[in-house]
Design a protein around this nucleic acid. Structure first.
Length: 496
RNA sequence: CGAGGCGUAGCGCAGUUGGUAGCGCGUCGGCUUUGGGAGCCGAAGGUCGCCGGUUCGAGCCCGGCCGCCUCGACCA
């Protein structure tokens, strides 16, 4: 059946499954430009739902939105040494501002070379801090809590739809604070928003923690992250929140006068989540029949499929519209699929592919019996529901599904977290084709060990959990590679 | 940037020894049909990735180029 639907089964080839899923479900296409993607309406609708939920949470914690330009003077990138190192290899550069005709078609006009080349933002710290310099003079100007929704470009050599594209959509928060502690609090507040969003909206369980120095953001003092596990048992970084210390304030000379009248450099944070969240959502919940979306982020939560022709059709459609109206009144995103050309069977498959959470089948036989048939996307059974109870019942099913998806994903993840104490066990866990799950192991804290481990096993340190998964994980031990002392276990995994 | 694979109708693919370009799905028209991708009849649809070579003749052989996908090194 899956073959007919054009989706490669997961256990046959997981990455092909993912590509098929994205394309067949109508979320996105590859662009003619390598690495870029066309986000189609169904995919963009998911992004809009994500944006709304996150934006509300940012606003509720005192943030405001603004917009900064996409083009950044090349010189800005090199102000912060680590920052330029981190991004130099993947920047697109604007060099000219005019085209002209020639025999071979349109060409770049060599006379229109820019005096200073411009970088298409890979992230906006530099252009934003250049503005903050002008906006901040006094402690009264702080904190400055700004977010922007934007596109950015990182010239990826190996793109994957939603997971890693050259251009992607995201939000990036950039805040300025009077003290280190306040900036720390901000970065943790955001980390908690991300964790809450992942779990309560995406139904994706995540482990919040801090990145090792080797994995932190280029230019950050330290980086917090939320890490999820995909169905092929790899880790995926779903969001990051950085404490930038005074690095960017120093690079852009942003100082403020404190209450004592003394000049100080401000403290900064930056934080972001991207359209990668959509890829994460797919990787965690979807199956061989298509999208499985958590109700809170499903563009179509309920689809009603009227069955019957001729005289029957009119009555069925009327009943369908009635139910749709009842559901809409309760804030449910519902669609009546009244296409005449397609058969009911086609529609069942089509909406399973597109990830409608609850399907309602409604035909003459049901109307006569005074019920409708419902089917939850994450379950196999069909359930009869009395017409009078249908709206309330379906609303309850959506709520139950939201919870069930999180529970299922958490059970899957927890079953694939391993505690390992010897190098043999460790390397065995990551050998072979599988992702290997999350491995909690002791690490001596050195960059050298981190690099050697990733070289040998392809597994990297995903994070040091903020709260230990088990209190015993913070019992000192010895490094799984070197045997040197270690304060706590950290999470290793192969990552997207 | 390294290794492999693939470019033929909108999509998915076949194309034998070099001999007039095919199949399925979709599309369009007609009839019939609606409870898990319905049926029959008919029709439209092609720069065989591009350039060159071999040949009487190239989708097929040879050379070059371009693009895409998968896997590695780098990354949200």
């Amino acid at each position: 059946m899956s073959k007919e639907l054009g989706i490669t089964p997961r256990d046959e080839n997981y990455s092909e499954w993912y590509n098929d899923l994205v394309k067949r479900s109508g979320l996105a296409d590859n662009s003619v430009v390598r690495g870029c993607m066309v986000i189609r309406p169904h995919g963009y609708a998911i992004w809009e739902l994500m944006q709304r939920a996150l934006d509300d949470m940012f606003k509720a914690t005192g943030h405001v939105n603004a917009y900064f330009p996409m083009l950044i003077p090349k010189s800005f990138l090199s102000r912060e040494a680590e920052h330029v190192d981190g991004f130099a290899k993947e920047c697109a550069v604007v060099t000219h501002h005019r085209l002209k005709d020639s025999e071979n078609g349109v060409i770049v006009d060599p006379d229109a070379r820019l005096e200073e080349e411009l970088i298409i933002r890979p992230t906006s710290e530099t252009i934003i801090w250049n503005s903050y310099k002008n906006w901040i003079q006094s402690y009264r100007d702080l904190p400055l809590l700004i977010n922007q929704w934007a596109n950015v470009m990182r010239w990826e050599l190996r793109p994957r739809l939603f997971l890693r594209t050259a251009e992607f959509l995201w939000q990036e928060g950039h805040t300025a604070h009077a003290t280190y502690e306040e900036a720390e609090q901000e970065s943790l507040t955001i980390l908690d928003i991300y964790r809450t969003f992942a779990e309560d909206w995406m139904a994706v369980p995540v482990i919040a923690g801090i990145k090792s120095d080797g994995e932190k953001f280029a230019g950050a003092d330290h980086t917090y992250t939320i890490e999820a596990m995909t169905q092929d048992l790899r880790a995926i970084q779903a969001g990051t929140s950085h404490h930038l210390g005074q690095n960017f304030a120093k690079a852009f000379d942003v100082t403020f006068q404190n209450k004592e009248g003394k000049l100080e450099y401000v403290y900064a944070t930056s934080w972001g989540v991207s359209t990668r969240l959509i890829g994460t959502l797919l990787m965690v919940h979807s199956d061989d029949r298509g999208l499985v979306l958590p109700p809170k982020l499903a563009p179509v939560q309920v689809v009603i499929i009227p069955i019957g022709r001729g005289e029957q059709r009119e009555a069925v459609l009327q009943a369908a519209d009635q139910l749709a109206g009842d559901l809409k009144a309760q804030g449910v995103r519902v669609k009546v699929d009244d296409r005449e050309k397609e058969s009911p069977g086609f529609k069942f498959n089509d909406w399973e592919l597109k990830g409608a959470c609850v399907r309602v089948e409604m035909g003459p036989r049901d109307l006569e019996a005074g019920h409708v048939i419902t089917a939850r996307r994450d379950q196999d059974e069909k359930v009869n529901v009395a017409v009078g109870d249908a709206a309330a019942n379906i609303v309850a099913q959506l709520a139950a599904m939201q919870v069930a998806l999180l529970d299922k994903a958490r059970a899957m993840r927890d079953a694939n977290i391993h505690r390992v104490d010897t190098w043999d066990e460790f390397s065995a866990q990551f050998s072979g084709e599988g992702g290997g799950g999350f491995v909690l192991a002791h690490w001596d804290g050195t960059q050298e060990s981190e690099d050697r481990i990733s070289e040998m096993t392809k597994a990297t340190i995903r994070c040091i959990p903020q709260v230990p998964l088990d209190p015993a994980d913070e019992t000192p031990g010895t490094c799984v590679l070197t045997g040197a002392p270690s304060a706590r276990r950290v999470i290793f995994a192969k990552a997207y």
